[in-house]
C-alpha cells in the first residue's frame, strides 16, 4: 500500500504532470519543488519514452527534449532519491510499458520502493495486461494506476474493482493535449466507479484552465494537468519554475472551490 491516498486528504486534489529532464533535471527539480510548494497534492513524473503513442504533440515534444538531453531511467531514479530529501508529497511515475520491462520490472519496482514512488501509470498497459507487472509491483508497495476511458463502458466496473492507488479517468477520446471543451459525461463514469470501489479517482486529458479543473474535480476527487504545464516549460525553459508554481497555485485554488 502506497502513500497515494494522502494526496486526497486535502480536499480535491490537484495533480500536475512533469516530464523528467525537460529540458534538464535541475529545471525539473525546481519545477517539482515549485509545484509542491504551491499546493500540488501528488506529482506525476514522466519518464520519457522515444515513441509515446498516447501523447499529443506537446508532451511528445517534452519527451524528445528530455531524451536529447541524455536523460535515462537510472538518472531519474537518482534524481528522485535526491528530491525525496525535502519533497514529501506522493509521487507517481508515468511512462510506457517498455521502459519498465527493459529496466527489469523487479529492479524498477524495487527502486520505486527505495525512492518513495508510490505508483506507476502505464497508458499502454490495459487491464488485460496488468499481470505483466502487478504481482511484482504489489510486493514493493507500488500501485499500478488503472485508467478508465470514455469508451470503457462495460469495462468500468471490472477495472474499478481491482484498482489501487487512484483511478485515472481519461476525459476525452484521443491523446493528451489541451482541449477547449470536454464532452464526455464524466459524472456517469464516476458513478459506476463509486459503485465498485472507494479508491479515489481523478480526471485528466485536455484540462488546462481553472474552470475546467474546477468542473472536473467537482465530478471526481481531483484534476490532472499535463500539457498545459509542459507548454510553460516549452515557453520558459530553465526559468519555468515560478510560472509553473503560479499556475499550480491557481489550479489548486480552483479545485478547492469545486
Amino acid at each position: 500500500m502506497s502513500n497515494i491516498k494522502d494526496a486526497f486528504r486535502n480536499g480535491k486534489a490537484f495533480i500536475p504532470f512533469i516530464t523528467c529532464g525537460d529540458p534538464d533535471l535541475e529545471t525539473t527539480a525546481k519545477v517539482v519543488r515549485a509545484a509542491a510548494e504551491n499546493g500540488a497534492d501528488l506529482i506525476e513524473l514522466g519518464i520519457p519514452f522515444s515513441d509515446p503513442t498516447a501523447e499529443g504533440p506537446v508532451i511528445q515534444g517534452a519527451n524528445i527534449r528530455a531524451l536529447a538531453g541524455g536523460i535515462t531511467t537510472d538518472k531519474i531514479f537518482d534524481f528522485v532519491a535526491e528530491l525525496r530529501r525535502d519533497v514529501k508529497i506522493p509521487l507517481v511515475f508515468m511512462t510506457y510499458a517498455n521502459v519498465v520491462f527493459s529496466y527489469d520490472a523487479e529492479r524498477f519496482m524495487a527502486r520505486c520502493c527505495e525512492t518513495g514512488v508510490g505508483g506507476i501509470i502505464l497508458p499502454d498497459l490495459p487491464y488485460e495486461e496488468k499481470d505483466e507487472f502487478s504481482d511484482i509491483a504489489r510486493r514493493y508497495g507500488v500501485d499500478i494506476i488503472s485508467l478508465i476511458a470514455p469508451t470503457s463502458a462495460n469495462r468500468i466496473a471490472m477495472i474499478a474493482k481491482e484498482a489501487t492507488g487512484f483511478i485515472y479517468v481519461v476525459s476525452s477520446l484521443g491523446v493528451t493535449g489541451t482541449r477547449s471543451e470536454i464532452t464526455t459525461n464524466i459524472g456517469d463514469i464516476v458513478k459506476v466507479i463509486r459503485e465498485n470501489t472507494d479508491v479515489p479517482c481523478a480526471v485528466g486529458f485536455g484540462i488546462s484552465k481553472p474552470e475546467q479543473a474546477k468542473k472536473m474535480a467537482g465530478l471526481s476527487d481531483g484534476a490532472i494537468v499535463g500539457s498545459a504545464i509542459i507548454k510553460l516549460l516549452e515557453q520558459y525553459g530553465k526559468d519555468a519554475a515560478p510560472y509553473v508554481g503560479e499556475y499550480v497555485k491557481s489550479m489548486k485554488e480552483a479545485v478547492m472551490e469545486a
Partner: peptide
C-alpha cells in the same frame, strides 16, 4: 503478442 494498448482502444 498480447494487447499493450491504451484503455481507450480496448473495446474497439
Amino acid at each position: 503478442g498480447g494487447q499493450y494498448i491504451p484503455e481507450t482502444l480496448m473495446n474497439a
